[in-house]
């Protein structure tokens, strides 16, 4: 039996969570004695296979086809489901990204397999696996079991450690039949510019109602750029129209777990904490000393963010 990691690439660039999934796959494979295989789907993606070799896969299957140049859920899921049918793996891992979650679910629907989404830990025990997945937006952590020969899981980005390791890294072609796509991709619009993707960022600088208006986000952007960080927002700032919904962190926004989360002018409502409570370090900057953010922040600064953030940016430039 094998453990399969379905790699995620866009324009030939592999996502960071793919390496996290491979590293976790390698740890589980070492514990259970399974072989580790990777599957990469796309067009002109041979170079991805070389990069995947660094993370210990015994075999890398490449489904390379012009019909797979643009990502569509149905074509990619058909390839993944065909690979599952061929390999009957014990476990299939992939990132819980926007694409990964739907791809895993559609493939699981075709292959009739159980899937635990958004896992934060996986343990192998007596040939079976236990999956930990936050439920109710992180207000509780459930432990799940999957019945059936093949189990699917998507992994929360930024939770599983990346480790390079050796593996045979044999590259094989995988050429299943690809159904005609029902969906046509008319355009892909990148909006994040030079900043990292929110769910994959090591550092996130977020702003809330305390910024006083949309122009307040200039401060957050300056701080983010001095740290190479992504920019997030509270629900209040999104609802006020100061920032697009894609930047919202919280129960009805993105769930993130960066190494460092700097919340400025964010009170720390429970629905916001649900989205960032697993960050390794939290910094809270707020003028209200009673703000709930100070109950969870590792480092809190009570004061005027209009003075603190520019000073912080200057200090970071010096350093």
């Amino acid at each position: 039996m094998s453990i399969v990691v379905c790699a995620e690439q866009r324009d030939g660039k592999l996502s960071k969570v793919t390496f996290e999934a491979l590293s976790e796959g390698k740890r589980l494979a070492a514990a259970s004695g399974e072989t580790l295989k990777a599957l990469v789907i796309g067009s002109g993606v041979a170079a991805c296979a070389d990069e995947l070799k660094k993370y210990g896969a015994d075999e890398i299957a490449v489904a390379d086809n012009e019909a797979l140049a643009a990502y569509t859920t149905e074509t990619y899921a058909a390839v993944l489901a065909a690979y599952i049918a061929q390999e009957s793996p014990a476990l299939v891992l992939m990132g819980h990204s926007t694409v990964g979650r739907e791809l895993a679910a559609r493939a699981a629907g075709i292959a009739d397999c159980g899937l635990v989404s958004d896992c934060v830990a996986i343990e192998s025990a007596d040939g079976d696996y236990l999956f930990k997945h936050p439920v109710y937006a992180g207000k509780a952590i459930g432990t799940f079991k999957i019945s059936g020969a093949t189990r699917l899981a998507t992994l929360r980005p930024n939770v599983f450690a990346i480790e390079e390791s050796d593996g045979a890294g044999a590259v094989v072609d995988f050429a299943p039949e690809i159904p005609a796509a029902k969906v046509t991709v008319k355009a892909v619009n990148k909006v994040s510019g030079d900043r990292p993707e929110l769910t994959e960022a090591d550092i996130i600088c977020s702003g809330g109602r305390g910024l006083g208006g949309p122009e307040g986000f200039k401060l957050i952007e300056d701080l983010a750029d001095s740290l190479g960080a992504a920019v997030g927002s509270s629900r209040a700032a999104v609802d006020a129209g100061w920032r697009e919904h894609a930047a919202q962190v919280g129960q009805t926004g993105k769930v993130v777990s960066p190494n460092l989360y700097i919340a400025s002018g964010i009170s720390g409502a429970i629905q916001h904490l649900a989205g960032m409570g697993t960050s390794k370090y939290i910094v809270g900057i707020n003028k209200d000393g009673e703000a709930n953010i100070f109950n969870v922040a590792d480092y809190g600064i009570e004061g005027d963010l209009n003075k603190i953030i520019p000073a912080l940016v200057e200090k970071l430039k010096e350093a």
Partner: peptide, 17 residues
């Protein structure tokens, strides 16, 4: 195919300095 064996509350975060 998926069964929740158990659930637990997450460890509470403590206020820092």
């Amino acid at each position: 195919k998926v069964e929740m064996v158990s659930a637990e509350l997450p460890p509470a975060r403590k206020a820092g300095q």
